[in-house]
Write a protein that binds this DNA or RNA. Sequence first.
DNA 1: TAACCGTGGTT
DNA 2: TAACCAAGGTT
Length: 366
Amino acid sequence: MCHIDPMAKTPSARPEKRNPRGENKAALLLAWYERVKRPLPWRQSDDPYRVWLSEVMLQQTRVETAIPYYERFLEAFPSVDSLARASEDQVLALWSGLGYYRRARMLLAAARDVVRSGGFPKTAEGWRRLPGVGRYTAAAVASIAYHEKVVALDGNLERVLARLEAYPRNPKSAAGRRFLTRAADSWLNPERPGDSNQALMELGATVCLPRDPLCQQCPIAEWCLARCRRRVDDYPYRAPAAAKEARSLVAVCVRKGAQFLLFRRGPGSGLLAGTWELPWAENDDTSPAKALAQRYGGAWRVGKNIGTIRHTITSRNLLVAVREGEVEALGVVAEGGDARWASLAELDELPHSSLVRKAFLAAAGC
DNA sequence: TAACCGTGGTT
DNA sequence: TAACCAAGGTT
């Protein structure tokens, strides 16, 4: 079934260009691409301006999202000369909603560079010097519009090639990029490098999907080492998620029957200074009692069992450890001034983050 | 190298 | 829902 050598260590160590039936792998890939490729608007011509514009718009952006922007933009600025004469406000207006607005500013700056220097660069190296044109975009434009034989390694190719080669390390590291670029090179038809790059992208976008890839439909599955090993789901390697910033909040519950003690935010707490809130504090370096005293003044004495973690609540980058325990607030508990009692219903009206509210309610056993 | 940049869709 | 992701580039 698999005619590749599963023990090979580098792509160049198993250079099979043809399968046992004698079919050339790059040709096979291209034939598949011609058969199934989506009729995307930027595939209607090899005009460098159009190719470039599409590549910039597609940076970290879904194809379906980019299409209407691409068409509107091209209608407003059909050539690099018309773009170069545009104002930044005009360009940003057409970009509005696409995100990564620096792309639009750099696109305009690059268009003016191009016009000033008398035309587009003719090589990937030349394109690379334009603002907003990185390694990928330069290679994509050069291969599609100028037929330069360079690999355009994007997220799709990373995934496709990491699976083809069962490459076990980070594809985004310098070494990973070199390895995968070399592997991709063997898939380029020298006559049609642009189509070859786009064929690999198309494969990644429609068949070799991030999750549940459609290996049954893959035209080059017989070259895929990951599939040969039945470990497609293990590739590409994913770096472990960066440790989230973990903060610890101490949320305390001072109750009198159904009443809860609120405190007034001190000066220096931004727009919410002076408003009432549930007592809580950062619990990083200082003790909970000191943190509370620093936030609300007075002297706090915290029960010794406060160290018990009752709940953890995660949000985007916040880890809240709710701790239980008895809290005595000495000297500041008297009603009036900076402390007052409130009913549970009143808590809903407070401008607390939902996180602090959750923490408090959990601490209160609500 | 890694964080950051925007938005919208998916799970 | 929170996390992840999508034809990356810049610092």
